[in-house]
Design a binder for these strands. Structure first.
Lengths: 207, 207
DNA sequence: CCATGTGAACCTTTTCACAGCG
DNA sequence: CGCTGTGAAAAGGTTCACATGG
């Protein structure tokens, strides 16, 4: 069943594997078994083997997976093989945290530009990125950026999203507390910190 | 099938409904149909009706749902009916953003204390919360806090998680880039910004 | 008549068991 | 013999169609 449709859940897990593989690479390891990889990411070994089976044969039976080639292949599947620039919109508290975050390199992702509407912020350089005027969003197509991180107040999120899409953005990581209405050709991933926290109490022991 | 085991996916969606309901409440609306609610959160009407059916009968056929009583009931299901205090560990860029985030009230959640190991930060007050010494984590049980947000560097995340659990924490929102190993009685929700961004390119149009 | 509640069908994902290969 | 790859079974979730009730 090689290269058949890959389940969404598998796609969601691939970056997790990638993160762990980069960890093992840093430690100088060359091969890893589904069992060891499973343990380090917190899933079952057969889940991992099944996931990898969707995109061909990889491991050597009796030996395991070659970390370097597995990494390369997962990156290709996820289209992370070429470095990608990402635009950040909204340089408030959260935007600053995103700019300071160091975990993007591993995936070949780079926050290459930042936008804000506050005149006091425009022109300043944060973490090596100069904050540009929100009004210049329309010039985005020139830079061929396809991904954006939306870290603006909820009230203007939809409007900003519309403008991002008009500027050619095809993938949005949305931090604001609202559902975005977008064309089918645009993929939105949503992070709502409060919401994630809100589902925890349900799982707390009742006592 | 009332009050039978509620699917995890339904539990995950309940806070989304809650968020939308609070929006409609603010607008002064009293009743809402599954169709309207569905539209405002981006799911199907029958999904919503099915979700609600797990915990009893609510709506009035031909009329819709009473927003106030529905809100109350969802909060009860999620155990958000009593206000809950949350401990934040790690007051770096991300920790600051979490402290400044205003979306917790809606769920009856409140970041009531913050911890850091940096002497320069200890004692300072950020967003009304005074940063305490990391070493005082062990005093946490006295405050009956069950939830914590982990916003520390990846390298020390597991160690800090162990200490949180030792201090009686039962639910952790983990922002660090690693899988936490915890006892079954502890629930961990994981947010990895880079990882969420990393799965977007897969869904980009190939052209 | 309109909108809910739900059994049944359908689809997706996970788990299992084991064949196959170095 | 150890570990991968995979069909098949089981579980979990979504969609549908329609009975029901104000």
């Amino acid at each position: 069943m090689r290269y058949a449709r890959i389940p969404d859940e598998t796609v969601r897990r691939l970056p997790i594997y990638l993160r762990s593989l980069s960890y093992w690479t840093d430690l100088g390891r060359e091969r890893i078994s589904s069992k060891d990889l499973a343990e380090s990411v917190g899933v079952n070994p057969w889940q991992i083997r099944k996931d990898f089976s969707y995109f061909g044969q990889f491991g050597a039976p009796g030996v395991g997976y070659d970390i370097a080639s597995l990494t390369k292949h997962i990156k290709k599947i996820l289209r992370l093989d070429n470095d990608k620039e990402v635009a950040l919109v909204g340089v408030g508290n959260l935007g600053n945290a995103v700019l300071a975050y160091s975990g993007f390199d591993r995936y070949g992702l780079k926050i290459a530009m930042a936008y804000d509407m506050n005149p006091k912020k425009i022109g300043k350089t944060v973490e090596g990125v100069t904050v540009e005027d929100f009004a210049d969003l329309s010039k985005l197509p020139l830079r061929k950026v396809k991904l954006a991180i939306l870290a603006v107040p909820t009230g203007i999120a939809q409007e900003v999203a519309d403008r991002l899409i008009a500027a050619g953005i095809k993938g949005i990581l949305n931090f604001s507390a609202c559902h975005l209405v977008v064309p089918k050709s645009v993929k939105v991933t949503h992070i709502d910190i409060a919401m994630d926290l809100a589902s925890l109490p349900y799982y707390l022991p009742t006592r």
